[in-house]
Simulated scan of single mutants.
Amino acid sequence: MTAADGVEPSRARALDVPRLVMRVRRLGDLSQRDLARVAGISQPQIARIERSLRGLDVRTLERILGLAGLRLAVVDDEGAEVFPVSDDVIRDNAGRLMPAHLDVRVPTDRPRRLLTDTRYDRAEPQGWYHHRAERDRRRRQLGTTSHVDQPTRPDAAAARRVRHGSTSGRPPDAAIDDCGCLDECWDTRGCASRCSCRCGG
C-alpha cells in the first residue's frame, strides 16, 4: 500500500485483516467462494473474516496474500522494513542461540580479561558476550546500538582470516566460509586433535 492508496505505511498501526482479504479479492477478481477454494477454507469462514467475526492465523493470511502477489512485512515507525535475525548467527558450543538482547563478539575478539586465560580443558568458545552493564559500557565506548546484528558463522570465519593472514595454509576464502575450526587449527596445516570440524585444513 502507498499514500496513493489512502494508507501511509508509517502511520499504519494495526493490521486490518478483513480489508486486506477484501484487497486480495479485488486484485485477484475473486469471489468469496473463489478465494475459499484456492485458500483451502470455507466460504462462510471468508465471510466471517471480512466481517471481523473470525480471526486468521499468520500462515493462512500469508497464503491468501500470496494469491495476489502480496507479502507480510514488519516495518518501523519510519516505514523501513525490519528483517528477522539471521539463522546463521554464532551459537554456543551446545548449539544454543546466544541471548538475543546481548552483543556477541566473534571468537577471535577475546575479552581483555581472558587474553592470558587459555583453557585447554574445554572447547574453544564459539563467541563471547557481556551482561547488560558491560554491554552498555561498550556500546557507549564504541558508539554502537542494539540495531547492530550479532555476528554470523561467516563473520567469524572472516575474522579468523584477518587475524591469521595468509600464512595459515588454509583453503581459499570460498571454501572455508562454513569452516568451524578452532583458533589453534589456524596455526597448523591441519585440524587440531580436538577440532570437530575435521575439514583437514
Rank of each mutant, 00 (worst) to 15 (best):
G127A: 11
D155A: 07
D87M: 01
E50W: 11
L70P: 01
D136G: 02
A68C: 11
G200K: 01
G143Q: 08
D155F: 02
R63E: 07
P171N: 03
R122C: 10
P99C: 08
A174N: 08
R161L: 07
R119I: 10
G6W: 06
D77P: 00
R23Y: 14
R135C: 09
A73E: 15
D121Y: 08
D88I: 02
Y120D: 12
C197I: 01
M22W: 15
R51K: 10
S146N: 11
R138P: 01
A157C: 08
L182C: 04
S168D: 15
L30H: 00
G201R: 10
A192N: 00
A174G: 09
V82Q: 10
P171H: 04
I176N: 05
R198K: 12
R110E: 06
S193M: 06
R110Q: 06
E78W: 08
L15C: 11
S166N: 14
R161H: 04
L65C: 03
S52K: 14
H131I: 13
T167N: 12
D87A: 00
D87K: 06
R19Y: 14
A39H: 01
A94L: 05
D76C: 07
H164Q: 11
E81V: 15
R189G: 13
Q141L: 07
D177L: 12
L20F: 11
S10N: 11
R11A: 12
C197V: 03
V148C: 12
P171D: 06
R189T: 13
R161K: 06
C191Y: 00
P125V: 04
E81L: 09
L35W: 00
C179V: 09
R122H: 10
E124T: 06
A3F: 06
R135Q: 14
G127L: 07
P107L: 03
G190K: 14
R160D: 14
G201Q: 10
T2I: 14
S166F: 07
A133N: 12
V89R: 15
P44A: 03
A158M: 13
S146R: 12
V162H: 08
F83C: 07
G165D: 05
A94W: 05
R13Y: 13
D29H: 10
D34W: 00
R71L: 04
L97Y: 05
R110F: 03
N93D: 02
